[in-house]
Design a protein around this nucleic acid. Sequence first.
DNA 1: CTGAAAGCGCTTACAG
DNA 2: CTGAAAGCGCTTACAG
Lengths: 346, 346
Amino acid sequence: MKKASLKDIAKKTGVSVTTVSIVLNGNGKERKISDSVIAKVERVAEKLYYRPNQFAKSLRTGKTFTLGLIVDDISNFFFAHLSKIVEEEADKFGYTVMFCSSENDEGKARNVLKILLDKQMDGYLIAPTLSMLPDVLQLIAEKRPLVLIDRFFQNATASYVTLDNYKGAYDSVDYFANQGYRNIALITNETEQIQMKERFEGYKDALKKNKLSFLPALVKKVSFKSEDEKIVIQIEKFLKARPDIDAILFTSNNLGVLGLESLRNLGKKVARDIGVICFDDNDLFRLASPGISVISQPIKQIGKNAIRILIDQIENKDMGQKHIVLSPNLVIRDSTPAKAVAVSAL
Amino acid sequence: MKKASLKDIAKKTGVSVTTVSIVLNGNGKERKISDSVIAKVERVAEKLYYRPNQFAKSLRTGKTFTLGLIVDDISNFFFAHLSKIVEEEADKFGYTVMFCSSENDEGKARNVLKILLDKQMDGYLIAPTLSMLPDVLQLIAEKRPLVLIDRFFQNATASYVTLDNYKGAYDSVDYFANQGYRNIALITNETEQIQMKERFEGYKDALKKNKLSFLPALVKKVSFKSEDEKIVIQIEKFLKARPDIDAILFTSNNLGVLGLESLRNLGKKVARDIGVICFDDNDLFRLASPGISVISQPIKQIGKNAIRILIDQIENKDMGQKHIVLSPNLVIRDSTPAKAVAVSAL
DNA sequence: CTGAAAGCGCTTACAG
DNA sequence: CTGAAAGCGCTTACAG
């Protein structure tokens, strides 16, 4: 039982392929095809389980109704949830989405983009690695529908949807300072990605505002490439070298999870020995005891906005640059208690 | 700058489209095209940034080099990680994969499969919901490459890769019993899915082996459809009704996470007040204190095996049924300490 | 060693 | 109200 084609239906109904095509695309009324023909074509199409061949359709029309999404790692909590929202939102407009992981790896990222390009996505949603700048510029030059998410390039004129990363870090450090913490460390990734730079700036500015001095020795930059076990060890070493650290801001979910492992290995108790705030919420942070305070991202808003802008580009040719910067939400749990004031002279 | 086609290259090089096609598919040598022509065609193709149009190719050949993966929920820890492995493995064979979530919803599941069918995947990897049985039977009838994962249908002759779910549950309950637990509860989903039924059987048989009686009142079945908050409340009610429960086996990751929330709300401390084992590992269980003992699935093995079998079906037409049942791994952490023996008569 | 031609399944301007 | 025909970009049996 081969798949039925327009030709099959045409033969069975005695009308032309043209007419069948018009009817099945719902343009029968408009093109004044007689009701009897419309009815007959529809009946036969149903009986033959007709489903249009998408390749033929795409080859002819150039449209695929498929969006490409490139993230660092689909198994990461933040991106996994974002992907789900994106899928849901895209579906509302009749689009499906292809997910790809760049693994923060130059080769992989460009390869994955090439594949999507070959499959001719109608639009692209990308959390770009730094190495993708040339590709992103090319996409823009070719006027392809594109929205960057989670981060952007300052010298690329693309629409994007991101968190106010500066504010997220600033608020966290400010909160730490108000709670009485004095030696606030930053554990971040060794990357020039814009969102990490902004978090770094927010960290520094909040220190300054609270009259705490910025010490490079309290900042640990971990390489993206390292394996998880190595990162845990790196963080342990860092913390051992500076036992005066009384609070840590982790700039990513993954770093936070590994950092908790380091703290456990060192026998340091969160809250009692050290304050912790982490970027991005997850189950662990929510349910750990003590619960971990986090800067949570409005994942739903990010996904919804990104899809809306992208669809607007695709369907309404609205290529105007849109920059959406969403507010982070500092969720206070148990990992950031007020510090007892040190009473020096009793 | 339009995309270059074979025709463009043919025109520029002065040879026929046929020859260009042969050369660019790497069959030049074999078809004895002269070296000079091969060189010229390749040079021009590169200069024009030639990339073949996949629709035209697929329309002609019927192949897409794309696999469809349908899971419950891509943002779930187990499936997110499985998806990543699947993507990696598929890539080794030159295939990309389209991910879809069924949301354990009848309508969504069938809709998503229809979309994949329309896009003509070369093969299907499915964690099927019960409602998908007819669709799965249809896929089999049409002899489409298909591997079921995580669960299967007893009356569908499909290849599958799953965990030995019976053993996972059996080992857990047996371990509980050996540690001195006596009132072991099962918290599971209200579903007839085979993997849940097997876990239920393993639970019952291990009770019997340890001469503990099976009490329906110690089993809580939660509806798939419930929202997370409602599940938390349901579990709380269940635990309050049976304060004698001293251990719980959760049959899924999600249930376990919500169950921990219920326990926390009730003020029950894991390990001290109640033993806990959960199906599927995740960051929370690994890093919580106390750490949660789990039955971990060999995610890598599942993904690798599934892809291997699927590719074998696609490329070697090996449609023989393969059933791979992988061994679970009981990882003991701190949530299952030995119970002090009650000394009744001192 | 190379090419003309058919055809995959669809859409669409054009004609009547 | 309906249809013949071109064409999207490719592959492939066939011919020479």
